[in-house]
């Protein structure tokens, strides 16, 4: 018995030696991941402490759930949660429908050259930073010669320029719009390739049956990409709370803070800004845990769905 065990270990070690170069190629980077991705998770322990800089781990004061209670009793937190959820749900809806419409519409363009040009140009904003996009949106929406105001005034919809960036109620829409402007083309890539995979014979058959273009889209194209859409939709539910904060930070200004602040910005402002590290960590931990829960729910839904589709 002991011999078998020993030879198993021997074999393992021998194989390990054989694969030493593979280890050499991966272990250094796995260590980097350990440092930069896993140690911060260990940092979550701070949310149960009253963390102060300059104290060792054992000198920190333990406070139990006090930080979480403080968060839940902070009115600002609910405002921030509302903003986060509102912008992520709006982003999710628009971020799916518009790229799908774009992909379907692009697929209907018969001129190959035109199609290629539109497609290439549509990727451009994805590669541009949020700083640039925010700058562009400020300019487009400005009251002082901004194109949007100019057009609306010329068309007679408004008498004087609207201060888009100063209206809190419009902030969610502006962020969603900016997001669409930036990512529509990019997010359509996967739908376009799903559409290309549809059997062209289906369209021919539909034409013979006298289906017009809209009916072809409705009965062939859309059902053809249905499974891709559902998979992507479920996967993105897990990221609902993690919408990032770049665009909110760059597009906001003090006038719209009530609508622009999201969880990460809240953590940044109250955590780092005021040196309340434990409080900020607790917020970060909260959003990470909610993400994981949502992901599991979405995964459950996915399993449910795929089981159904198999049946």
């Amino acid at each position: 018995m002991a011999n078998v065990e020993a030879s198993k270990v021997d074999l393992f070690v021998k194989k390990m030696y054989q694969q030493r170069y593979l280890y050499l190629m991966s272990v250094p980077f796995i260590i980097l991941v350990l440092i930069f991705n896993y140690i911060p998770i260990w940092g979550w322990i701070m949310s149960f402490q009253n963390f102060k800089l300059g104290r060792t781990f054992f000198e920190q004061e333990w406070v139990g759930l006090a930080n979480f209670i403080q968060i839940l009793s902070d009115k600002q937190f609910y405002l921030v949660l509302r903003n986060t959820l509102a912008m992520s749900v709006m982003g999710l809806i628009a971020g799916f429908t518009i790229p799908i419409i774009f992909a379907v519409s692009l697929n209907e363009v018969s001129h190959t050259g035109y199609k290629k040009i539109v497609q290439t140009i549509s990727y451009l904003p994805h590669f541009v930073s949020w700083v640039v996009v925010a700058g562009i949106f400020y300019k487009l929406l400005s009251t002082d010669g901004g194109v949007v105001n100019d057009i609306l005034m010329k068309l007679g919809f408004i008498g004087e320029p609207i201060q888009f960036m100063a209206k809190g109620k419009l902030f969610w829409w502006i962020v969603t719009l900016a997001d669409i402007w930036k990512e529509m083309g990019w997010n359509s890539i996967i739908f376009i390739s799903a559409i290309t995979a549809i059997d062209p014979q289906l369209y021919d058959a539909a034409k013979v049956d006298g289906c017009g273009r809209f009916r072809q889209i409705w009965h062939i194209t859309l059902p053809g990409i249905r499974s891709v859409v559902i998979v992507l939709l479920i996967l993105s539910i897990g990221n609902l709370v993690r919408i990032g904060f770049e665009k909110q930070m760059l597009l906001s200004n003090p006038l719209v803070f009530d609508y622009s602040e999201v969880l990460d910005l809240y953590a940044l402002k109250y955590g780092l800004g005021l040196n309340r590290f434990s409080f900020g960590t607790a917020i970060g931990m909260f959003s990470s845990l909610v993400s994981v829960c949502l992901l599991f729910t979405a995964n459950g839904l996915f399993k449910h769905y795929s089981k159904e589709s198999v049946m």
């Binding site: 140690i39 911060p40 998770i41 940092g43 979550w44 701070m46 897990g238 955590g271 990470s288 994981v292």
Partner: peptide, 19 residues
């Protein structure tokens, strides 16, 4: 698995900053 997990869970801004 070690790498996949990093796609779903992150420590957040503040622990990252302190690190």
């Amino acid at each position: 698995t070690f790498l996949v997990l990093t796609l779903y869970v992150s420590g957040g801004l503040i622990p990252g900053f302190l690190l």
